[in-house]
Amino acid sequence: MKKKHDSKYKLIAKAIIEYRKEQGITQKQLAEKLGVSISYISKIEAPNSEKGFSLEILFDISEELDVPVSNFFKYLN
């Protein structure tokens, strides 16, 4: 089922991928740091995924990558 904001989640995921890769962190490493499964991270980042995610996990990702949470919204403008 398509959700109203799927495209926005995908743009946020694009930024997450970008910052994660810039730091040389794998999905597995990020998942371990966050205490979530690698499949959860891969679903967040998958371009064809319809997986939404909470602000809580976004804040956790922001802290782990040491990136201001606002940076994840850069593609939404």
Rank of each mutant, 00 (worst) to 15 (best):
N48H: 12
I41L: 02
K4F: 10
L34S: 02
A13E: 02
F59V: 12
V67E: 00
A46Q: 00
S49T: 01
E22V: 05
V67C: 02
V67Q: 02
K74D: 07
E18C: 15
D60N: 13
Q29H: 07
L34Y: 06
K28R: 12
S62M: 03
I61C: 03
H5K: 05
L30Y: 00
F53V: 00
E56L: 12
I17M: 12
Y40L: 15
I61E: 01
S42C: 04
K8W: 06
A46V: 00
A46C: 10
L11T: 01
S37P: 13
K51G: 04
I17S: 15
H5A: 10
S49A: 01
G35Q: 04
E18Y: 14
P68R: 05
K3G: 06
E64Y: 06
H5W: 07
N77G: 08
S54Q: 10
L76N: 01
K3D: 05
S39W: 07
G24H: 10
D66N: 15
K3I: 00
E63T: 07
E32M: 08
L34V: 08
L30R: 00
K51I: 01
I61N: 05
Y9M: 05
E18Q: 14
K14A: 15
K74A: 12
L55N: 06
E63S: 12
E22R: 01
P68D: 15
L58I: 10
K21G: 13
T26H: 04
I41V: 07
I17H: 08
A31V: 06
F73L: 05
I44E: 00
K51P: 00
L76F: 02
E64T: 09
S7W: 11
E64N: 13
D60R: 14
I17F: 03
K8F: 01
Y40V: 14
K74I: 06
V67N: 02
N48I: 11
Y40K: 12
S7T: 09
E22A: 08
E50L: 10
L76V: 02
A46N: 07
K14M: 14
Y40F: 08
Y9F: 14
S49D: 00
K74W: 04
L55C: 09
E64L: 09
G52E: 09
K33Y: 06
H5F: 11
S42A: 14
Q29F: 02
Y9K: 04
D66W: 05
L65S: 05
I57R: 04
V67K: 03
S49Q: 00
K51E: 07
E22K: 10
Y75P: 03
E56I: 15
Q29T: 10
H5Q: 11
V36Q: 06
S7N: 12
E45H: 01
E18F: 15
D6R: 04
S39P: 03
R20Q: 12
R20S: 04
K74V: 08
I41H: 02
E18N: 10
N48Q: 14
E56S: 12
N77W: 09
G24L: 11
M1K: 08
E45I: 00
V69K: 00
L65P: 07
Y75V: 03
N71D: 09
S70I: 08
L58N: 02
E45G: 00
K2T: 15
E50C: 08
I12S: 04
